[in-house]
Design a protein around this nucleic acid. Sequence first.
RNA 1: GGGAGUUUAGCUCAGUUGGUUUAGAGCAUCUGCCUUACAAGCAGAGGGUCGGGGGUUCGACUCCCUCAACUCCCACCA
Length: 895
Amino acid sequence: MELSAKYSPSEVEDKWYAFWLEHKFFHSEPNEKEPYTIVIPPPNVTGVLHMGHVLNETIQDILVRRARMDGKNACWVPGTDHASIATEAKVIKRLAEQGIKKSDLTREEFLKHAWAWTDEHGGIILKQLRKLGCSCDWDRTSFTMDETRSKAVIKVFCDLYDKGLIYRGLRMVNWDPERQTALSDEEVIYHDEHSKFYYLKYMVAEEPGKYAVVATTRPETIFGDVAVCINPKEEKNQWLKGKHLIVPIVGREIPVIEDRYVEIGFGTGCLKVTPAHDANDYMLGQVHNLPAYDILTADAHVDITCLEEDIQKNCQSYQGMDRFVCRKQIAKDLEAAGLIEKIEDYDNKVGYSERTNVPIEPRLSLQWFIRMQHFADIALPPVMDDDIQFYPAKYKNTYNNWLSNIKDWCISRQLWWGHRIPAYFLPGQEGVKDENRKYVVAPTAEEALVKARQIAGYENIEISDLKQDEGALDTWFSSWLWPISLFDGIENPDNDEINYYYPTSDLVTGPDIIFFWVARMIMAGYEYKQAMPFKHVYFTGIVRDKLGRKMSKSLGNSPDPLDLIARFGADGVRMGIMLSAPAGNDILFDDSLCEQGRNFCNKIWNAFRLVTGWNIDDSAAQPEASQQAVKWFANKLNAVVAEVNDAFSKFRISDALMTIYKLFWDDFCSWYLEIIKPAYGAGIDKQTYEATIKFFGDLLVLLHPYMPFITEELWQNLGERAEGETIMFQPTPKAGEYSQEFLAAFELVQGAVNNIRGIRQQKNLSPKEALELKIKGNSFPAELECVITKLANISSIEKVDAWGEEAGVSFVVGIIEMFIPLAGLVNVDEEIAKIKAELEHQYGFLQGVRKKLSNESFVAHAPEKVIAIERKKESDALSRIATYEAQLKVLESSK
RNA sequence: GGGAGUUUAGCUCAGUUGGUUUAGAGCAUCUGCCUUACAAGCAGAGGGUCGGGGGUUCGACUCCCUCAACUCCCACCA
């Protein structure tokens, strides 16, 4: 077979992926084998593959493929997330481009558009994962809004409601005025901001001409002011006690109230209280029994129509103004009226919506919540006790911190795209306040009707009388069930699949969703399966560019993974992303990493070309050097396999890759193959050839989890394969016994070869020119001398008792003294200088060792083993020094 | 304001309970090579005293204190 000198990934990748699919190698069914399960962190259904996914999915694929080769029944379940807010935003944007407003559509019409969008763009990302080589069980592809998953969500909602763990209430929530929905606390991101601190004058009603100064960053909320609060202990504000103040512009007369909440010494000590627009003010309002005027619309425009008529008159000009426009306008107007004492620069934090990046507005609204204390109680211990293990473990702290200060979870969203809240309101409550309206919670309208008819007075209502809550549930309310709902473990809690695959093995995800997702899955796992959802959590880092910046569309620093795959091959990209990916560390990604991956593919490819290009000579005897090489590599392979196994057990999968990389490139190619390489034109003996093929196969198997395509391609061509055979199920090589002594002896051989090569380089000697080697005293194991002979092109090895008078270069490896005669090629002065420098180093070393040994405390305290090592160092150094000194003498006398 | 983490060759990182020839790797760099698998390669070489300071110890990159820089998370100060 003629093979090109370069590996062409595109030619083999699609072929083998199709082969794997065709044979259903990725598919898993429960059987008697040990399961190994991963559920994919479901990407947004309309999302596109980015480098973060590449990292995350590559790690998962490595783990899954490795488990499969270890003989486990590996199952990697793929799927997508409906991503309520993000997707609804995209749909609204597209509708806007067509001139359609969401408000013009009915819920049903809107959902039709949303599903159309989902069908159109959904699953693109899953197709892209195939290009990466991901071995997901595609037959199990799921969606958080498909039937099984949706039923699970609704069932869980009803169940938690029945348990009293879900409640509906009027609360101050984080409001996104752009998308016009409530958000959970976790969906708010705080940014530092340079803003202004406005000092406003509030005239005292009882004492005309006198005023109190109130400092605020949000003057636009003064329409909703209902009190000014002071700390009862604050000296300078004592005179305000019991007084009333007049809100500037608005003209409302409000009381001065006292509460220790106000911090003494901060600002002016006077805090304006606006219960409808600040969480703390709301709390104060509750305590002091104050009204709340909501003066902002859902899209954060001023709306004063809730105020009394005479007050409305004063504020008319602000009606309908955007909140930030109004802020400026009020400042301007107050300034003009002389009601601003001063404006200061002020740094504070402002919350932004994670999804729309719009400043959130604290808003009083009626929402659904989950009582979280119960879930914190069940989810904290397993992580703190390491039943569930985090890699890296530092995230235990983060987890602990969050669960120990848990707040109730706002799960309702004012969106249509998502799971509709299964609460049904009873008819005939027109006059009743929203928060007091009666409802029933049930999975379906029919079941809701049954429940409703049991309530006195509603015995005769019909389904059409019930009004379902308009809201949808937070996306994460479906995601937290993912490891259970994927196996239908909510609706059918005892089915074979859930019993077999759950708990899953490893979860691979980013630390940014530790609260959103990881913690909540653990909660749901213990609530609904009484067991952990996964045993290990591997937290990846963030993929950044080489300057350490986050990858973003606006910076244009985010490479397209498919483009990278086209340039470097999927294996090259996988290797590139894995080269520097210890758990929890950010990855500074650079194309050159993929280049390294591609180069490695090429190296493997060429090694294959070499090995399979040899002709087997049945009559040839195995050369001594080859025999030693085979023995050495067998030992080395065992040692490395043990190392790799250890690395995997600690989730150090980048380390494992680097270890295999060096094994292949340095040990196998640079040493092993060079030793066994037959002379030009000659055939190779059968024994060596077969051993080599075996080694190559083992190496491919070791590499396969990282580089699935090239390893399958070469493995298939490495020997006769039956139809339907695949490297995917070849067992990982076992870590057998190996001789530390033999490996150490071989290292000495390598040292000698390196030295001789170095001498050649310095003396400008061709590799083709054979050299003689003399060895004095100690030597290598005799059987390894032939390796030096071959690799360093040595014509003869002579054992001598002392160096003669001839010119040459000497060197020491370990404590073996060697000499290369080089008549006429030696610059005596140069050699003397070199040896002197070496001697100096040895003297320094010896001195250090002796200082230790002459220290009585050291000899008294240090363990015997350590002292023995120091003594060995001493004698070795002495022996080397003797050698160099003798050489120096010879050289000097030859001058 | 709390908490966590990081700081080791030009870059990215190892360094496992303090002691294994006076600190390792990959990449990059430099030198010499188109040597009959591979120039996406081969061979060789140089380069850190382990952020600063102090301490514990016979001995510290490794433990303690302190200072500095950077990163991240959490928190209602208007």
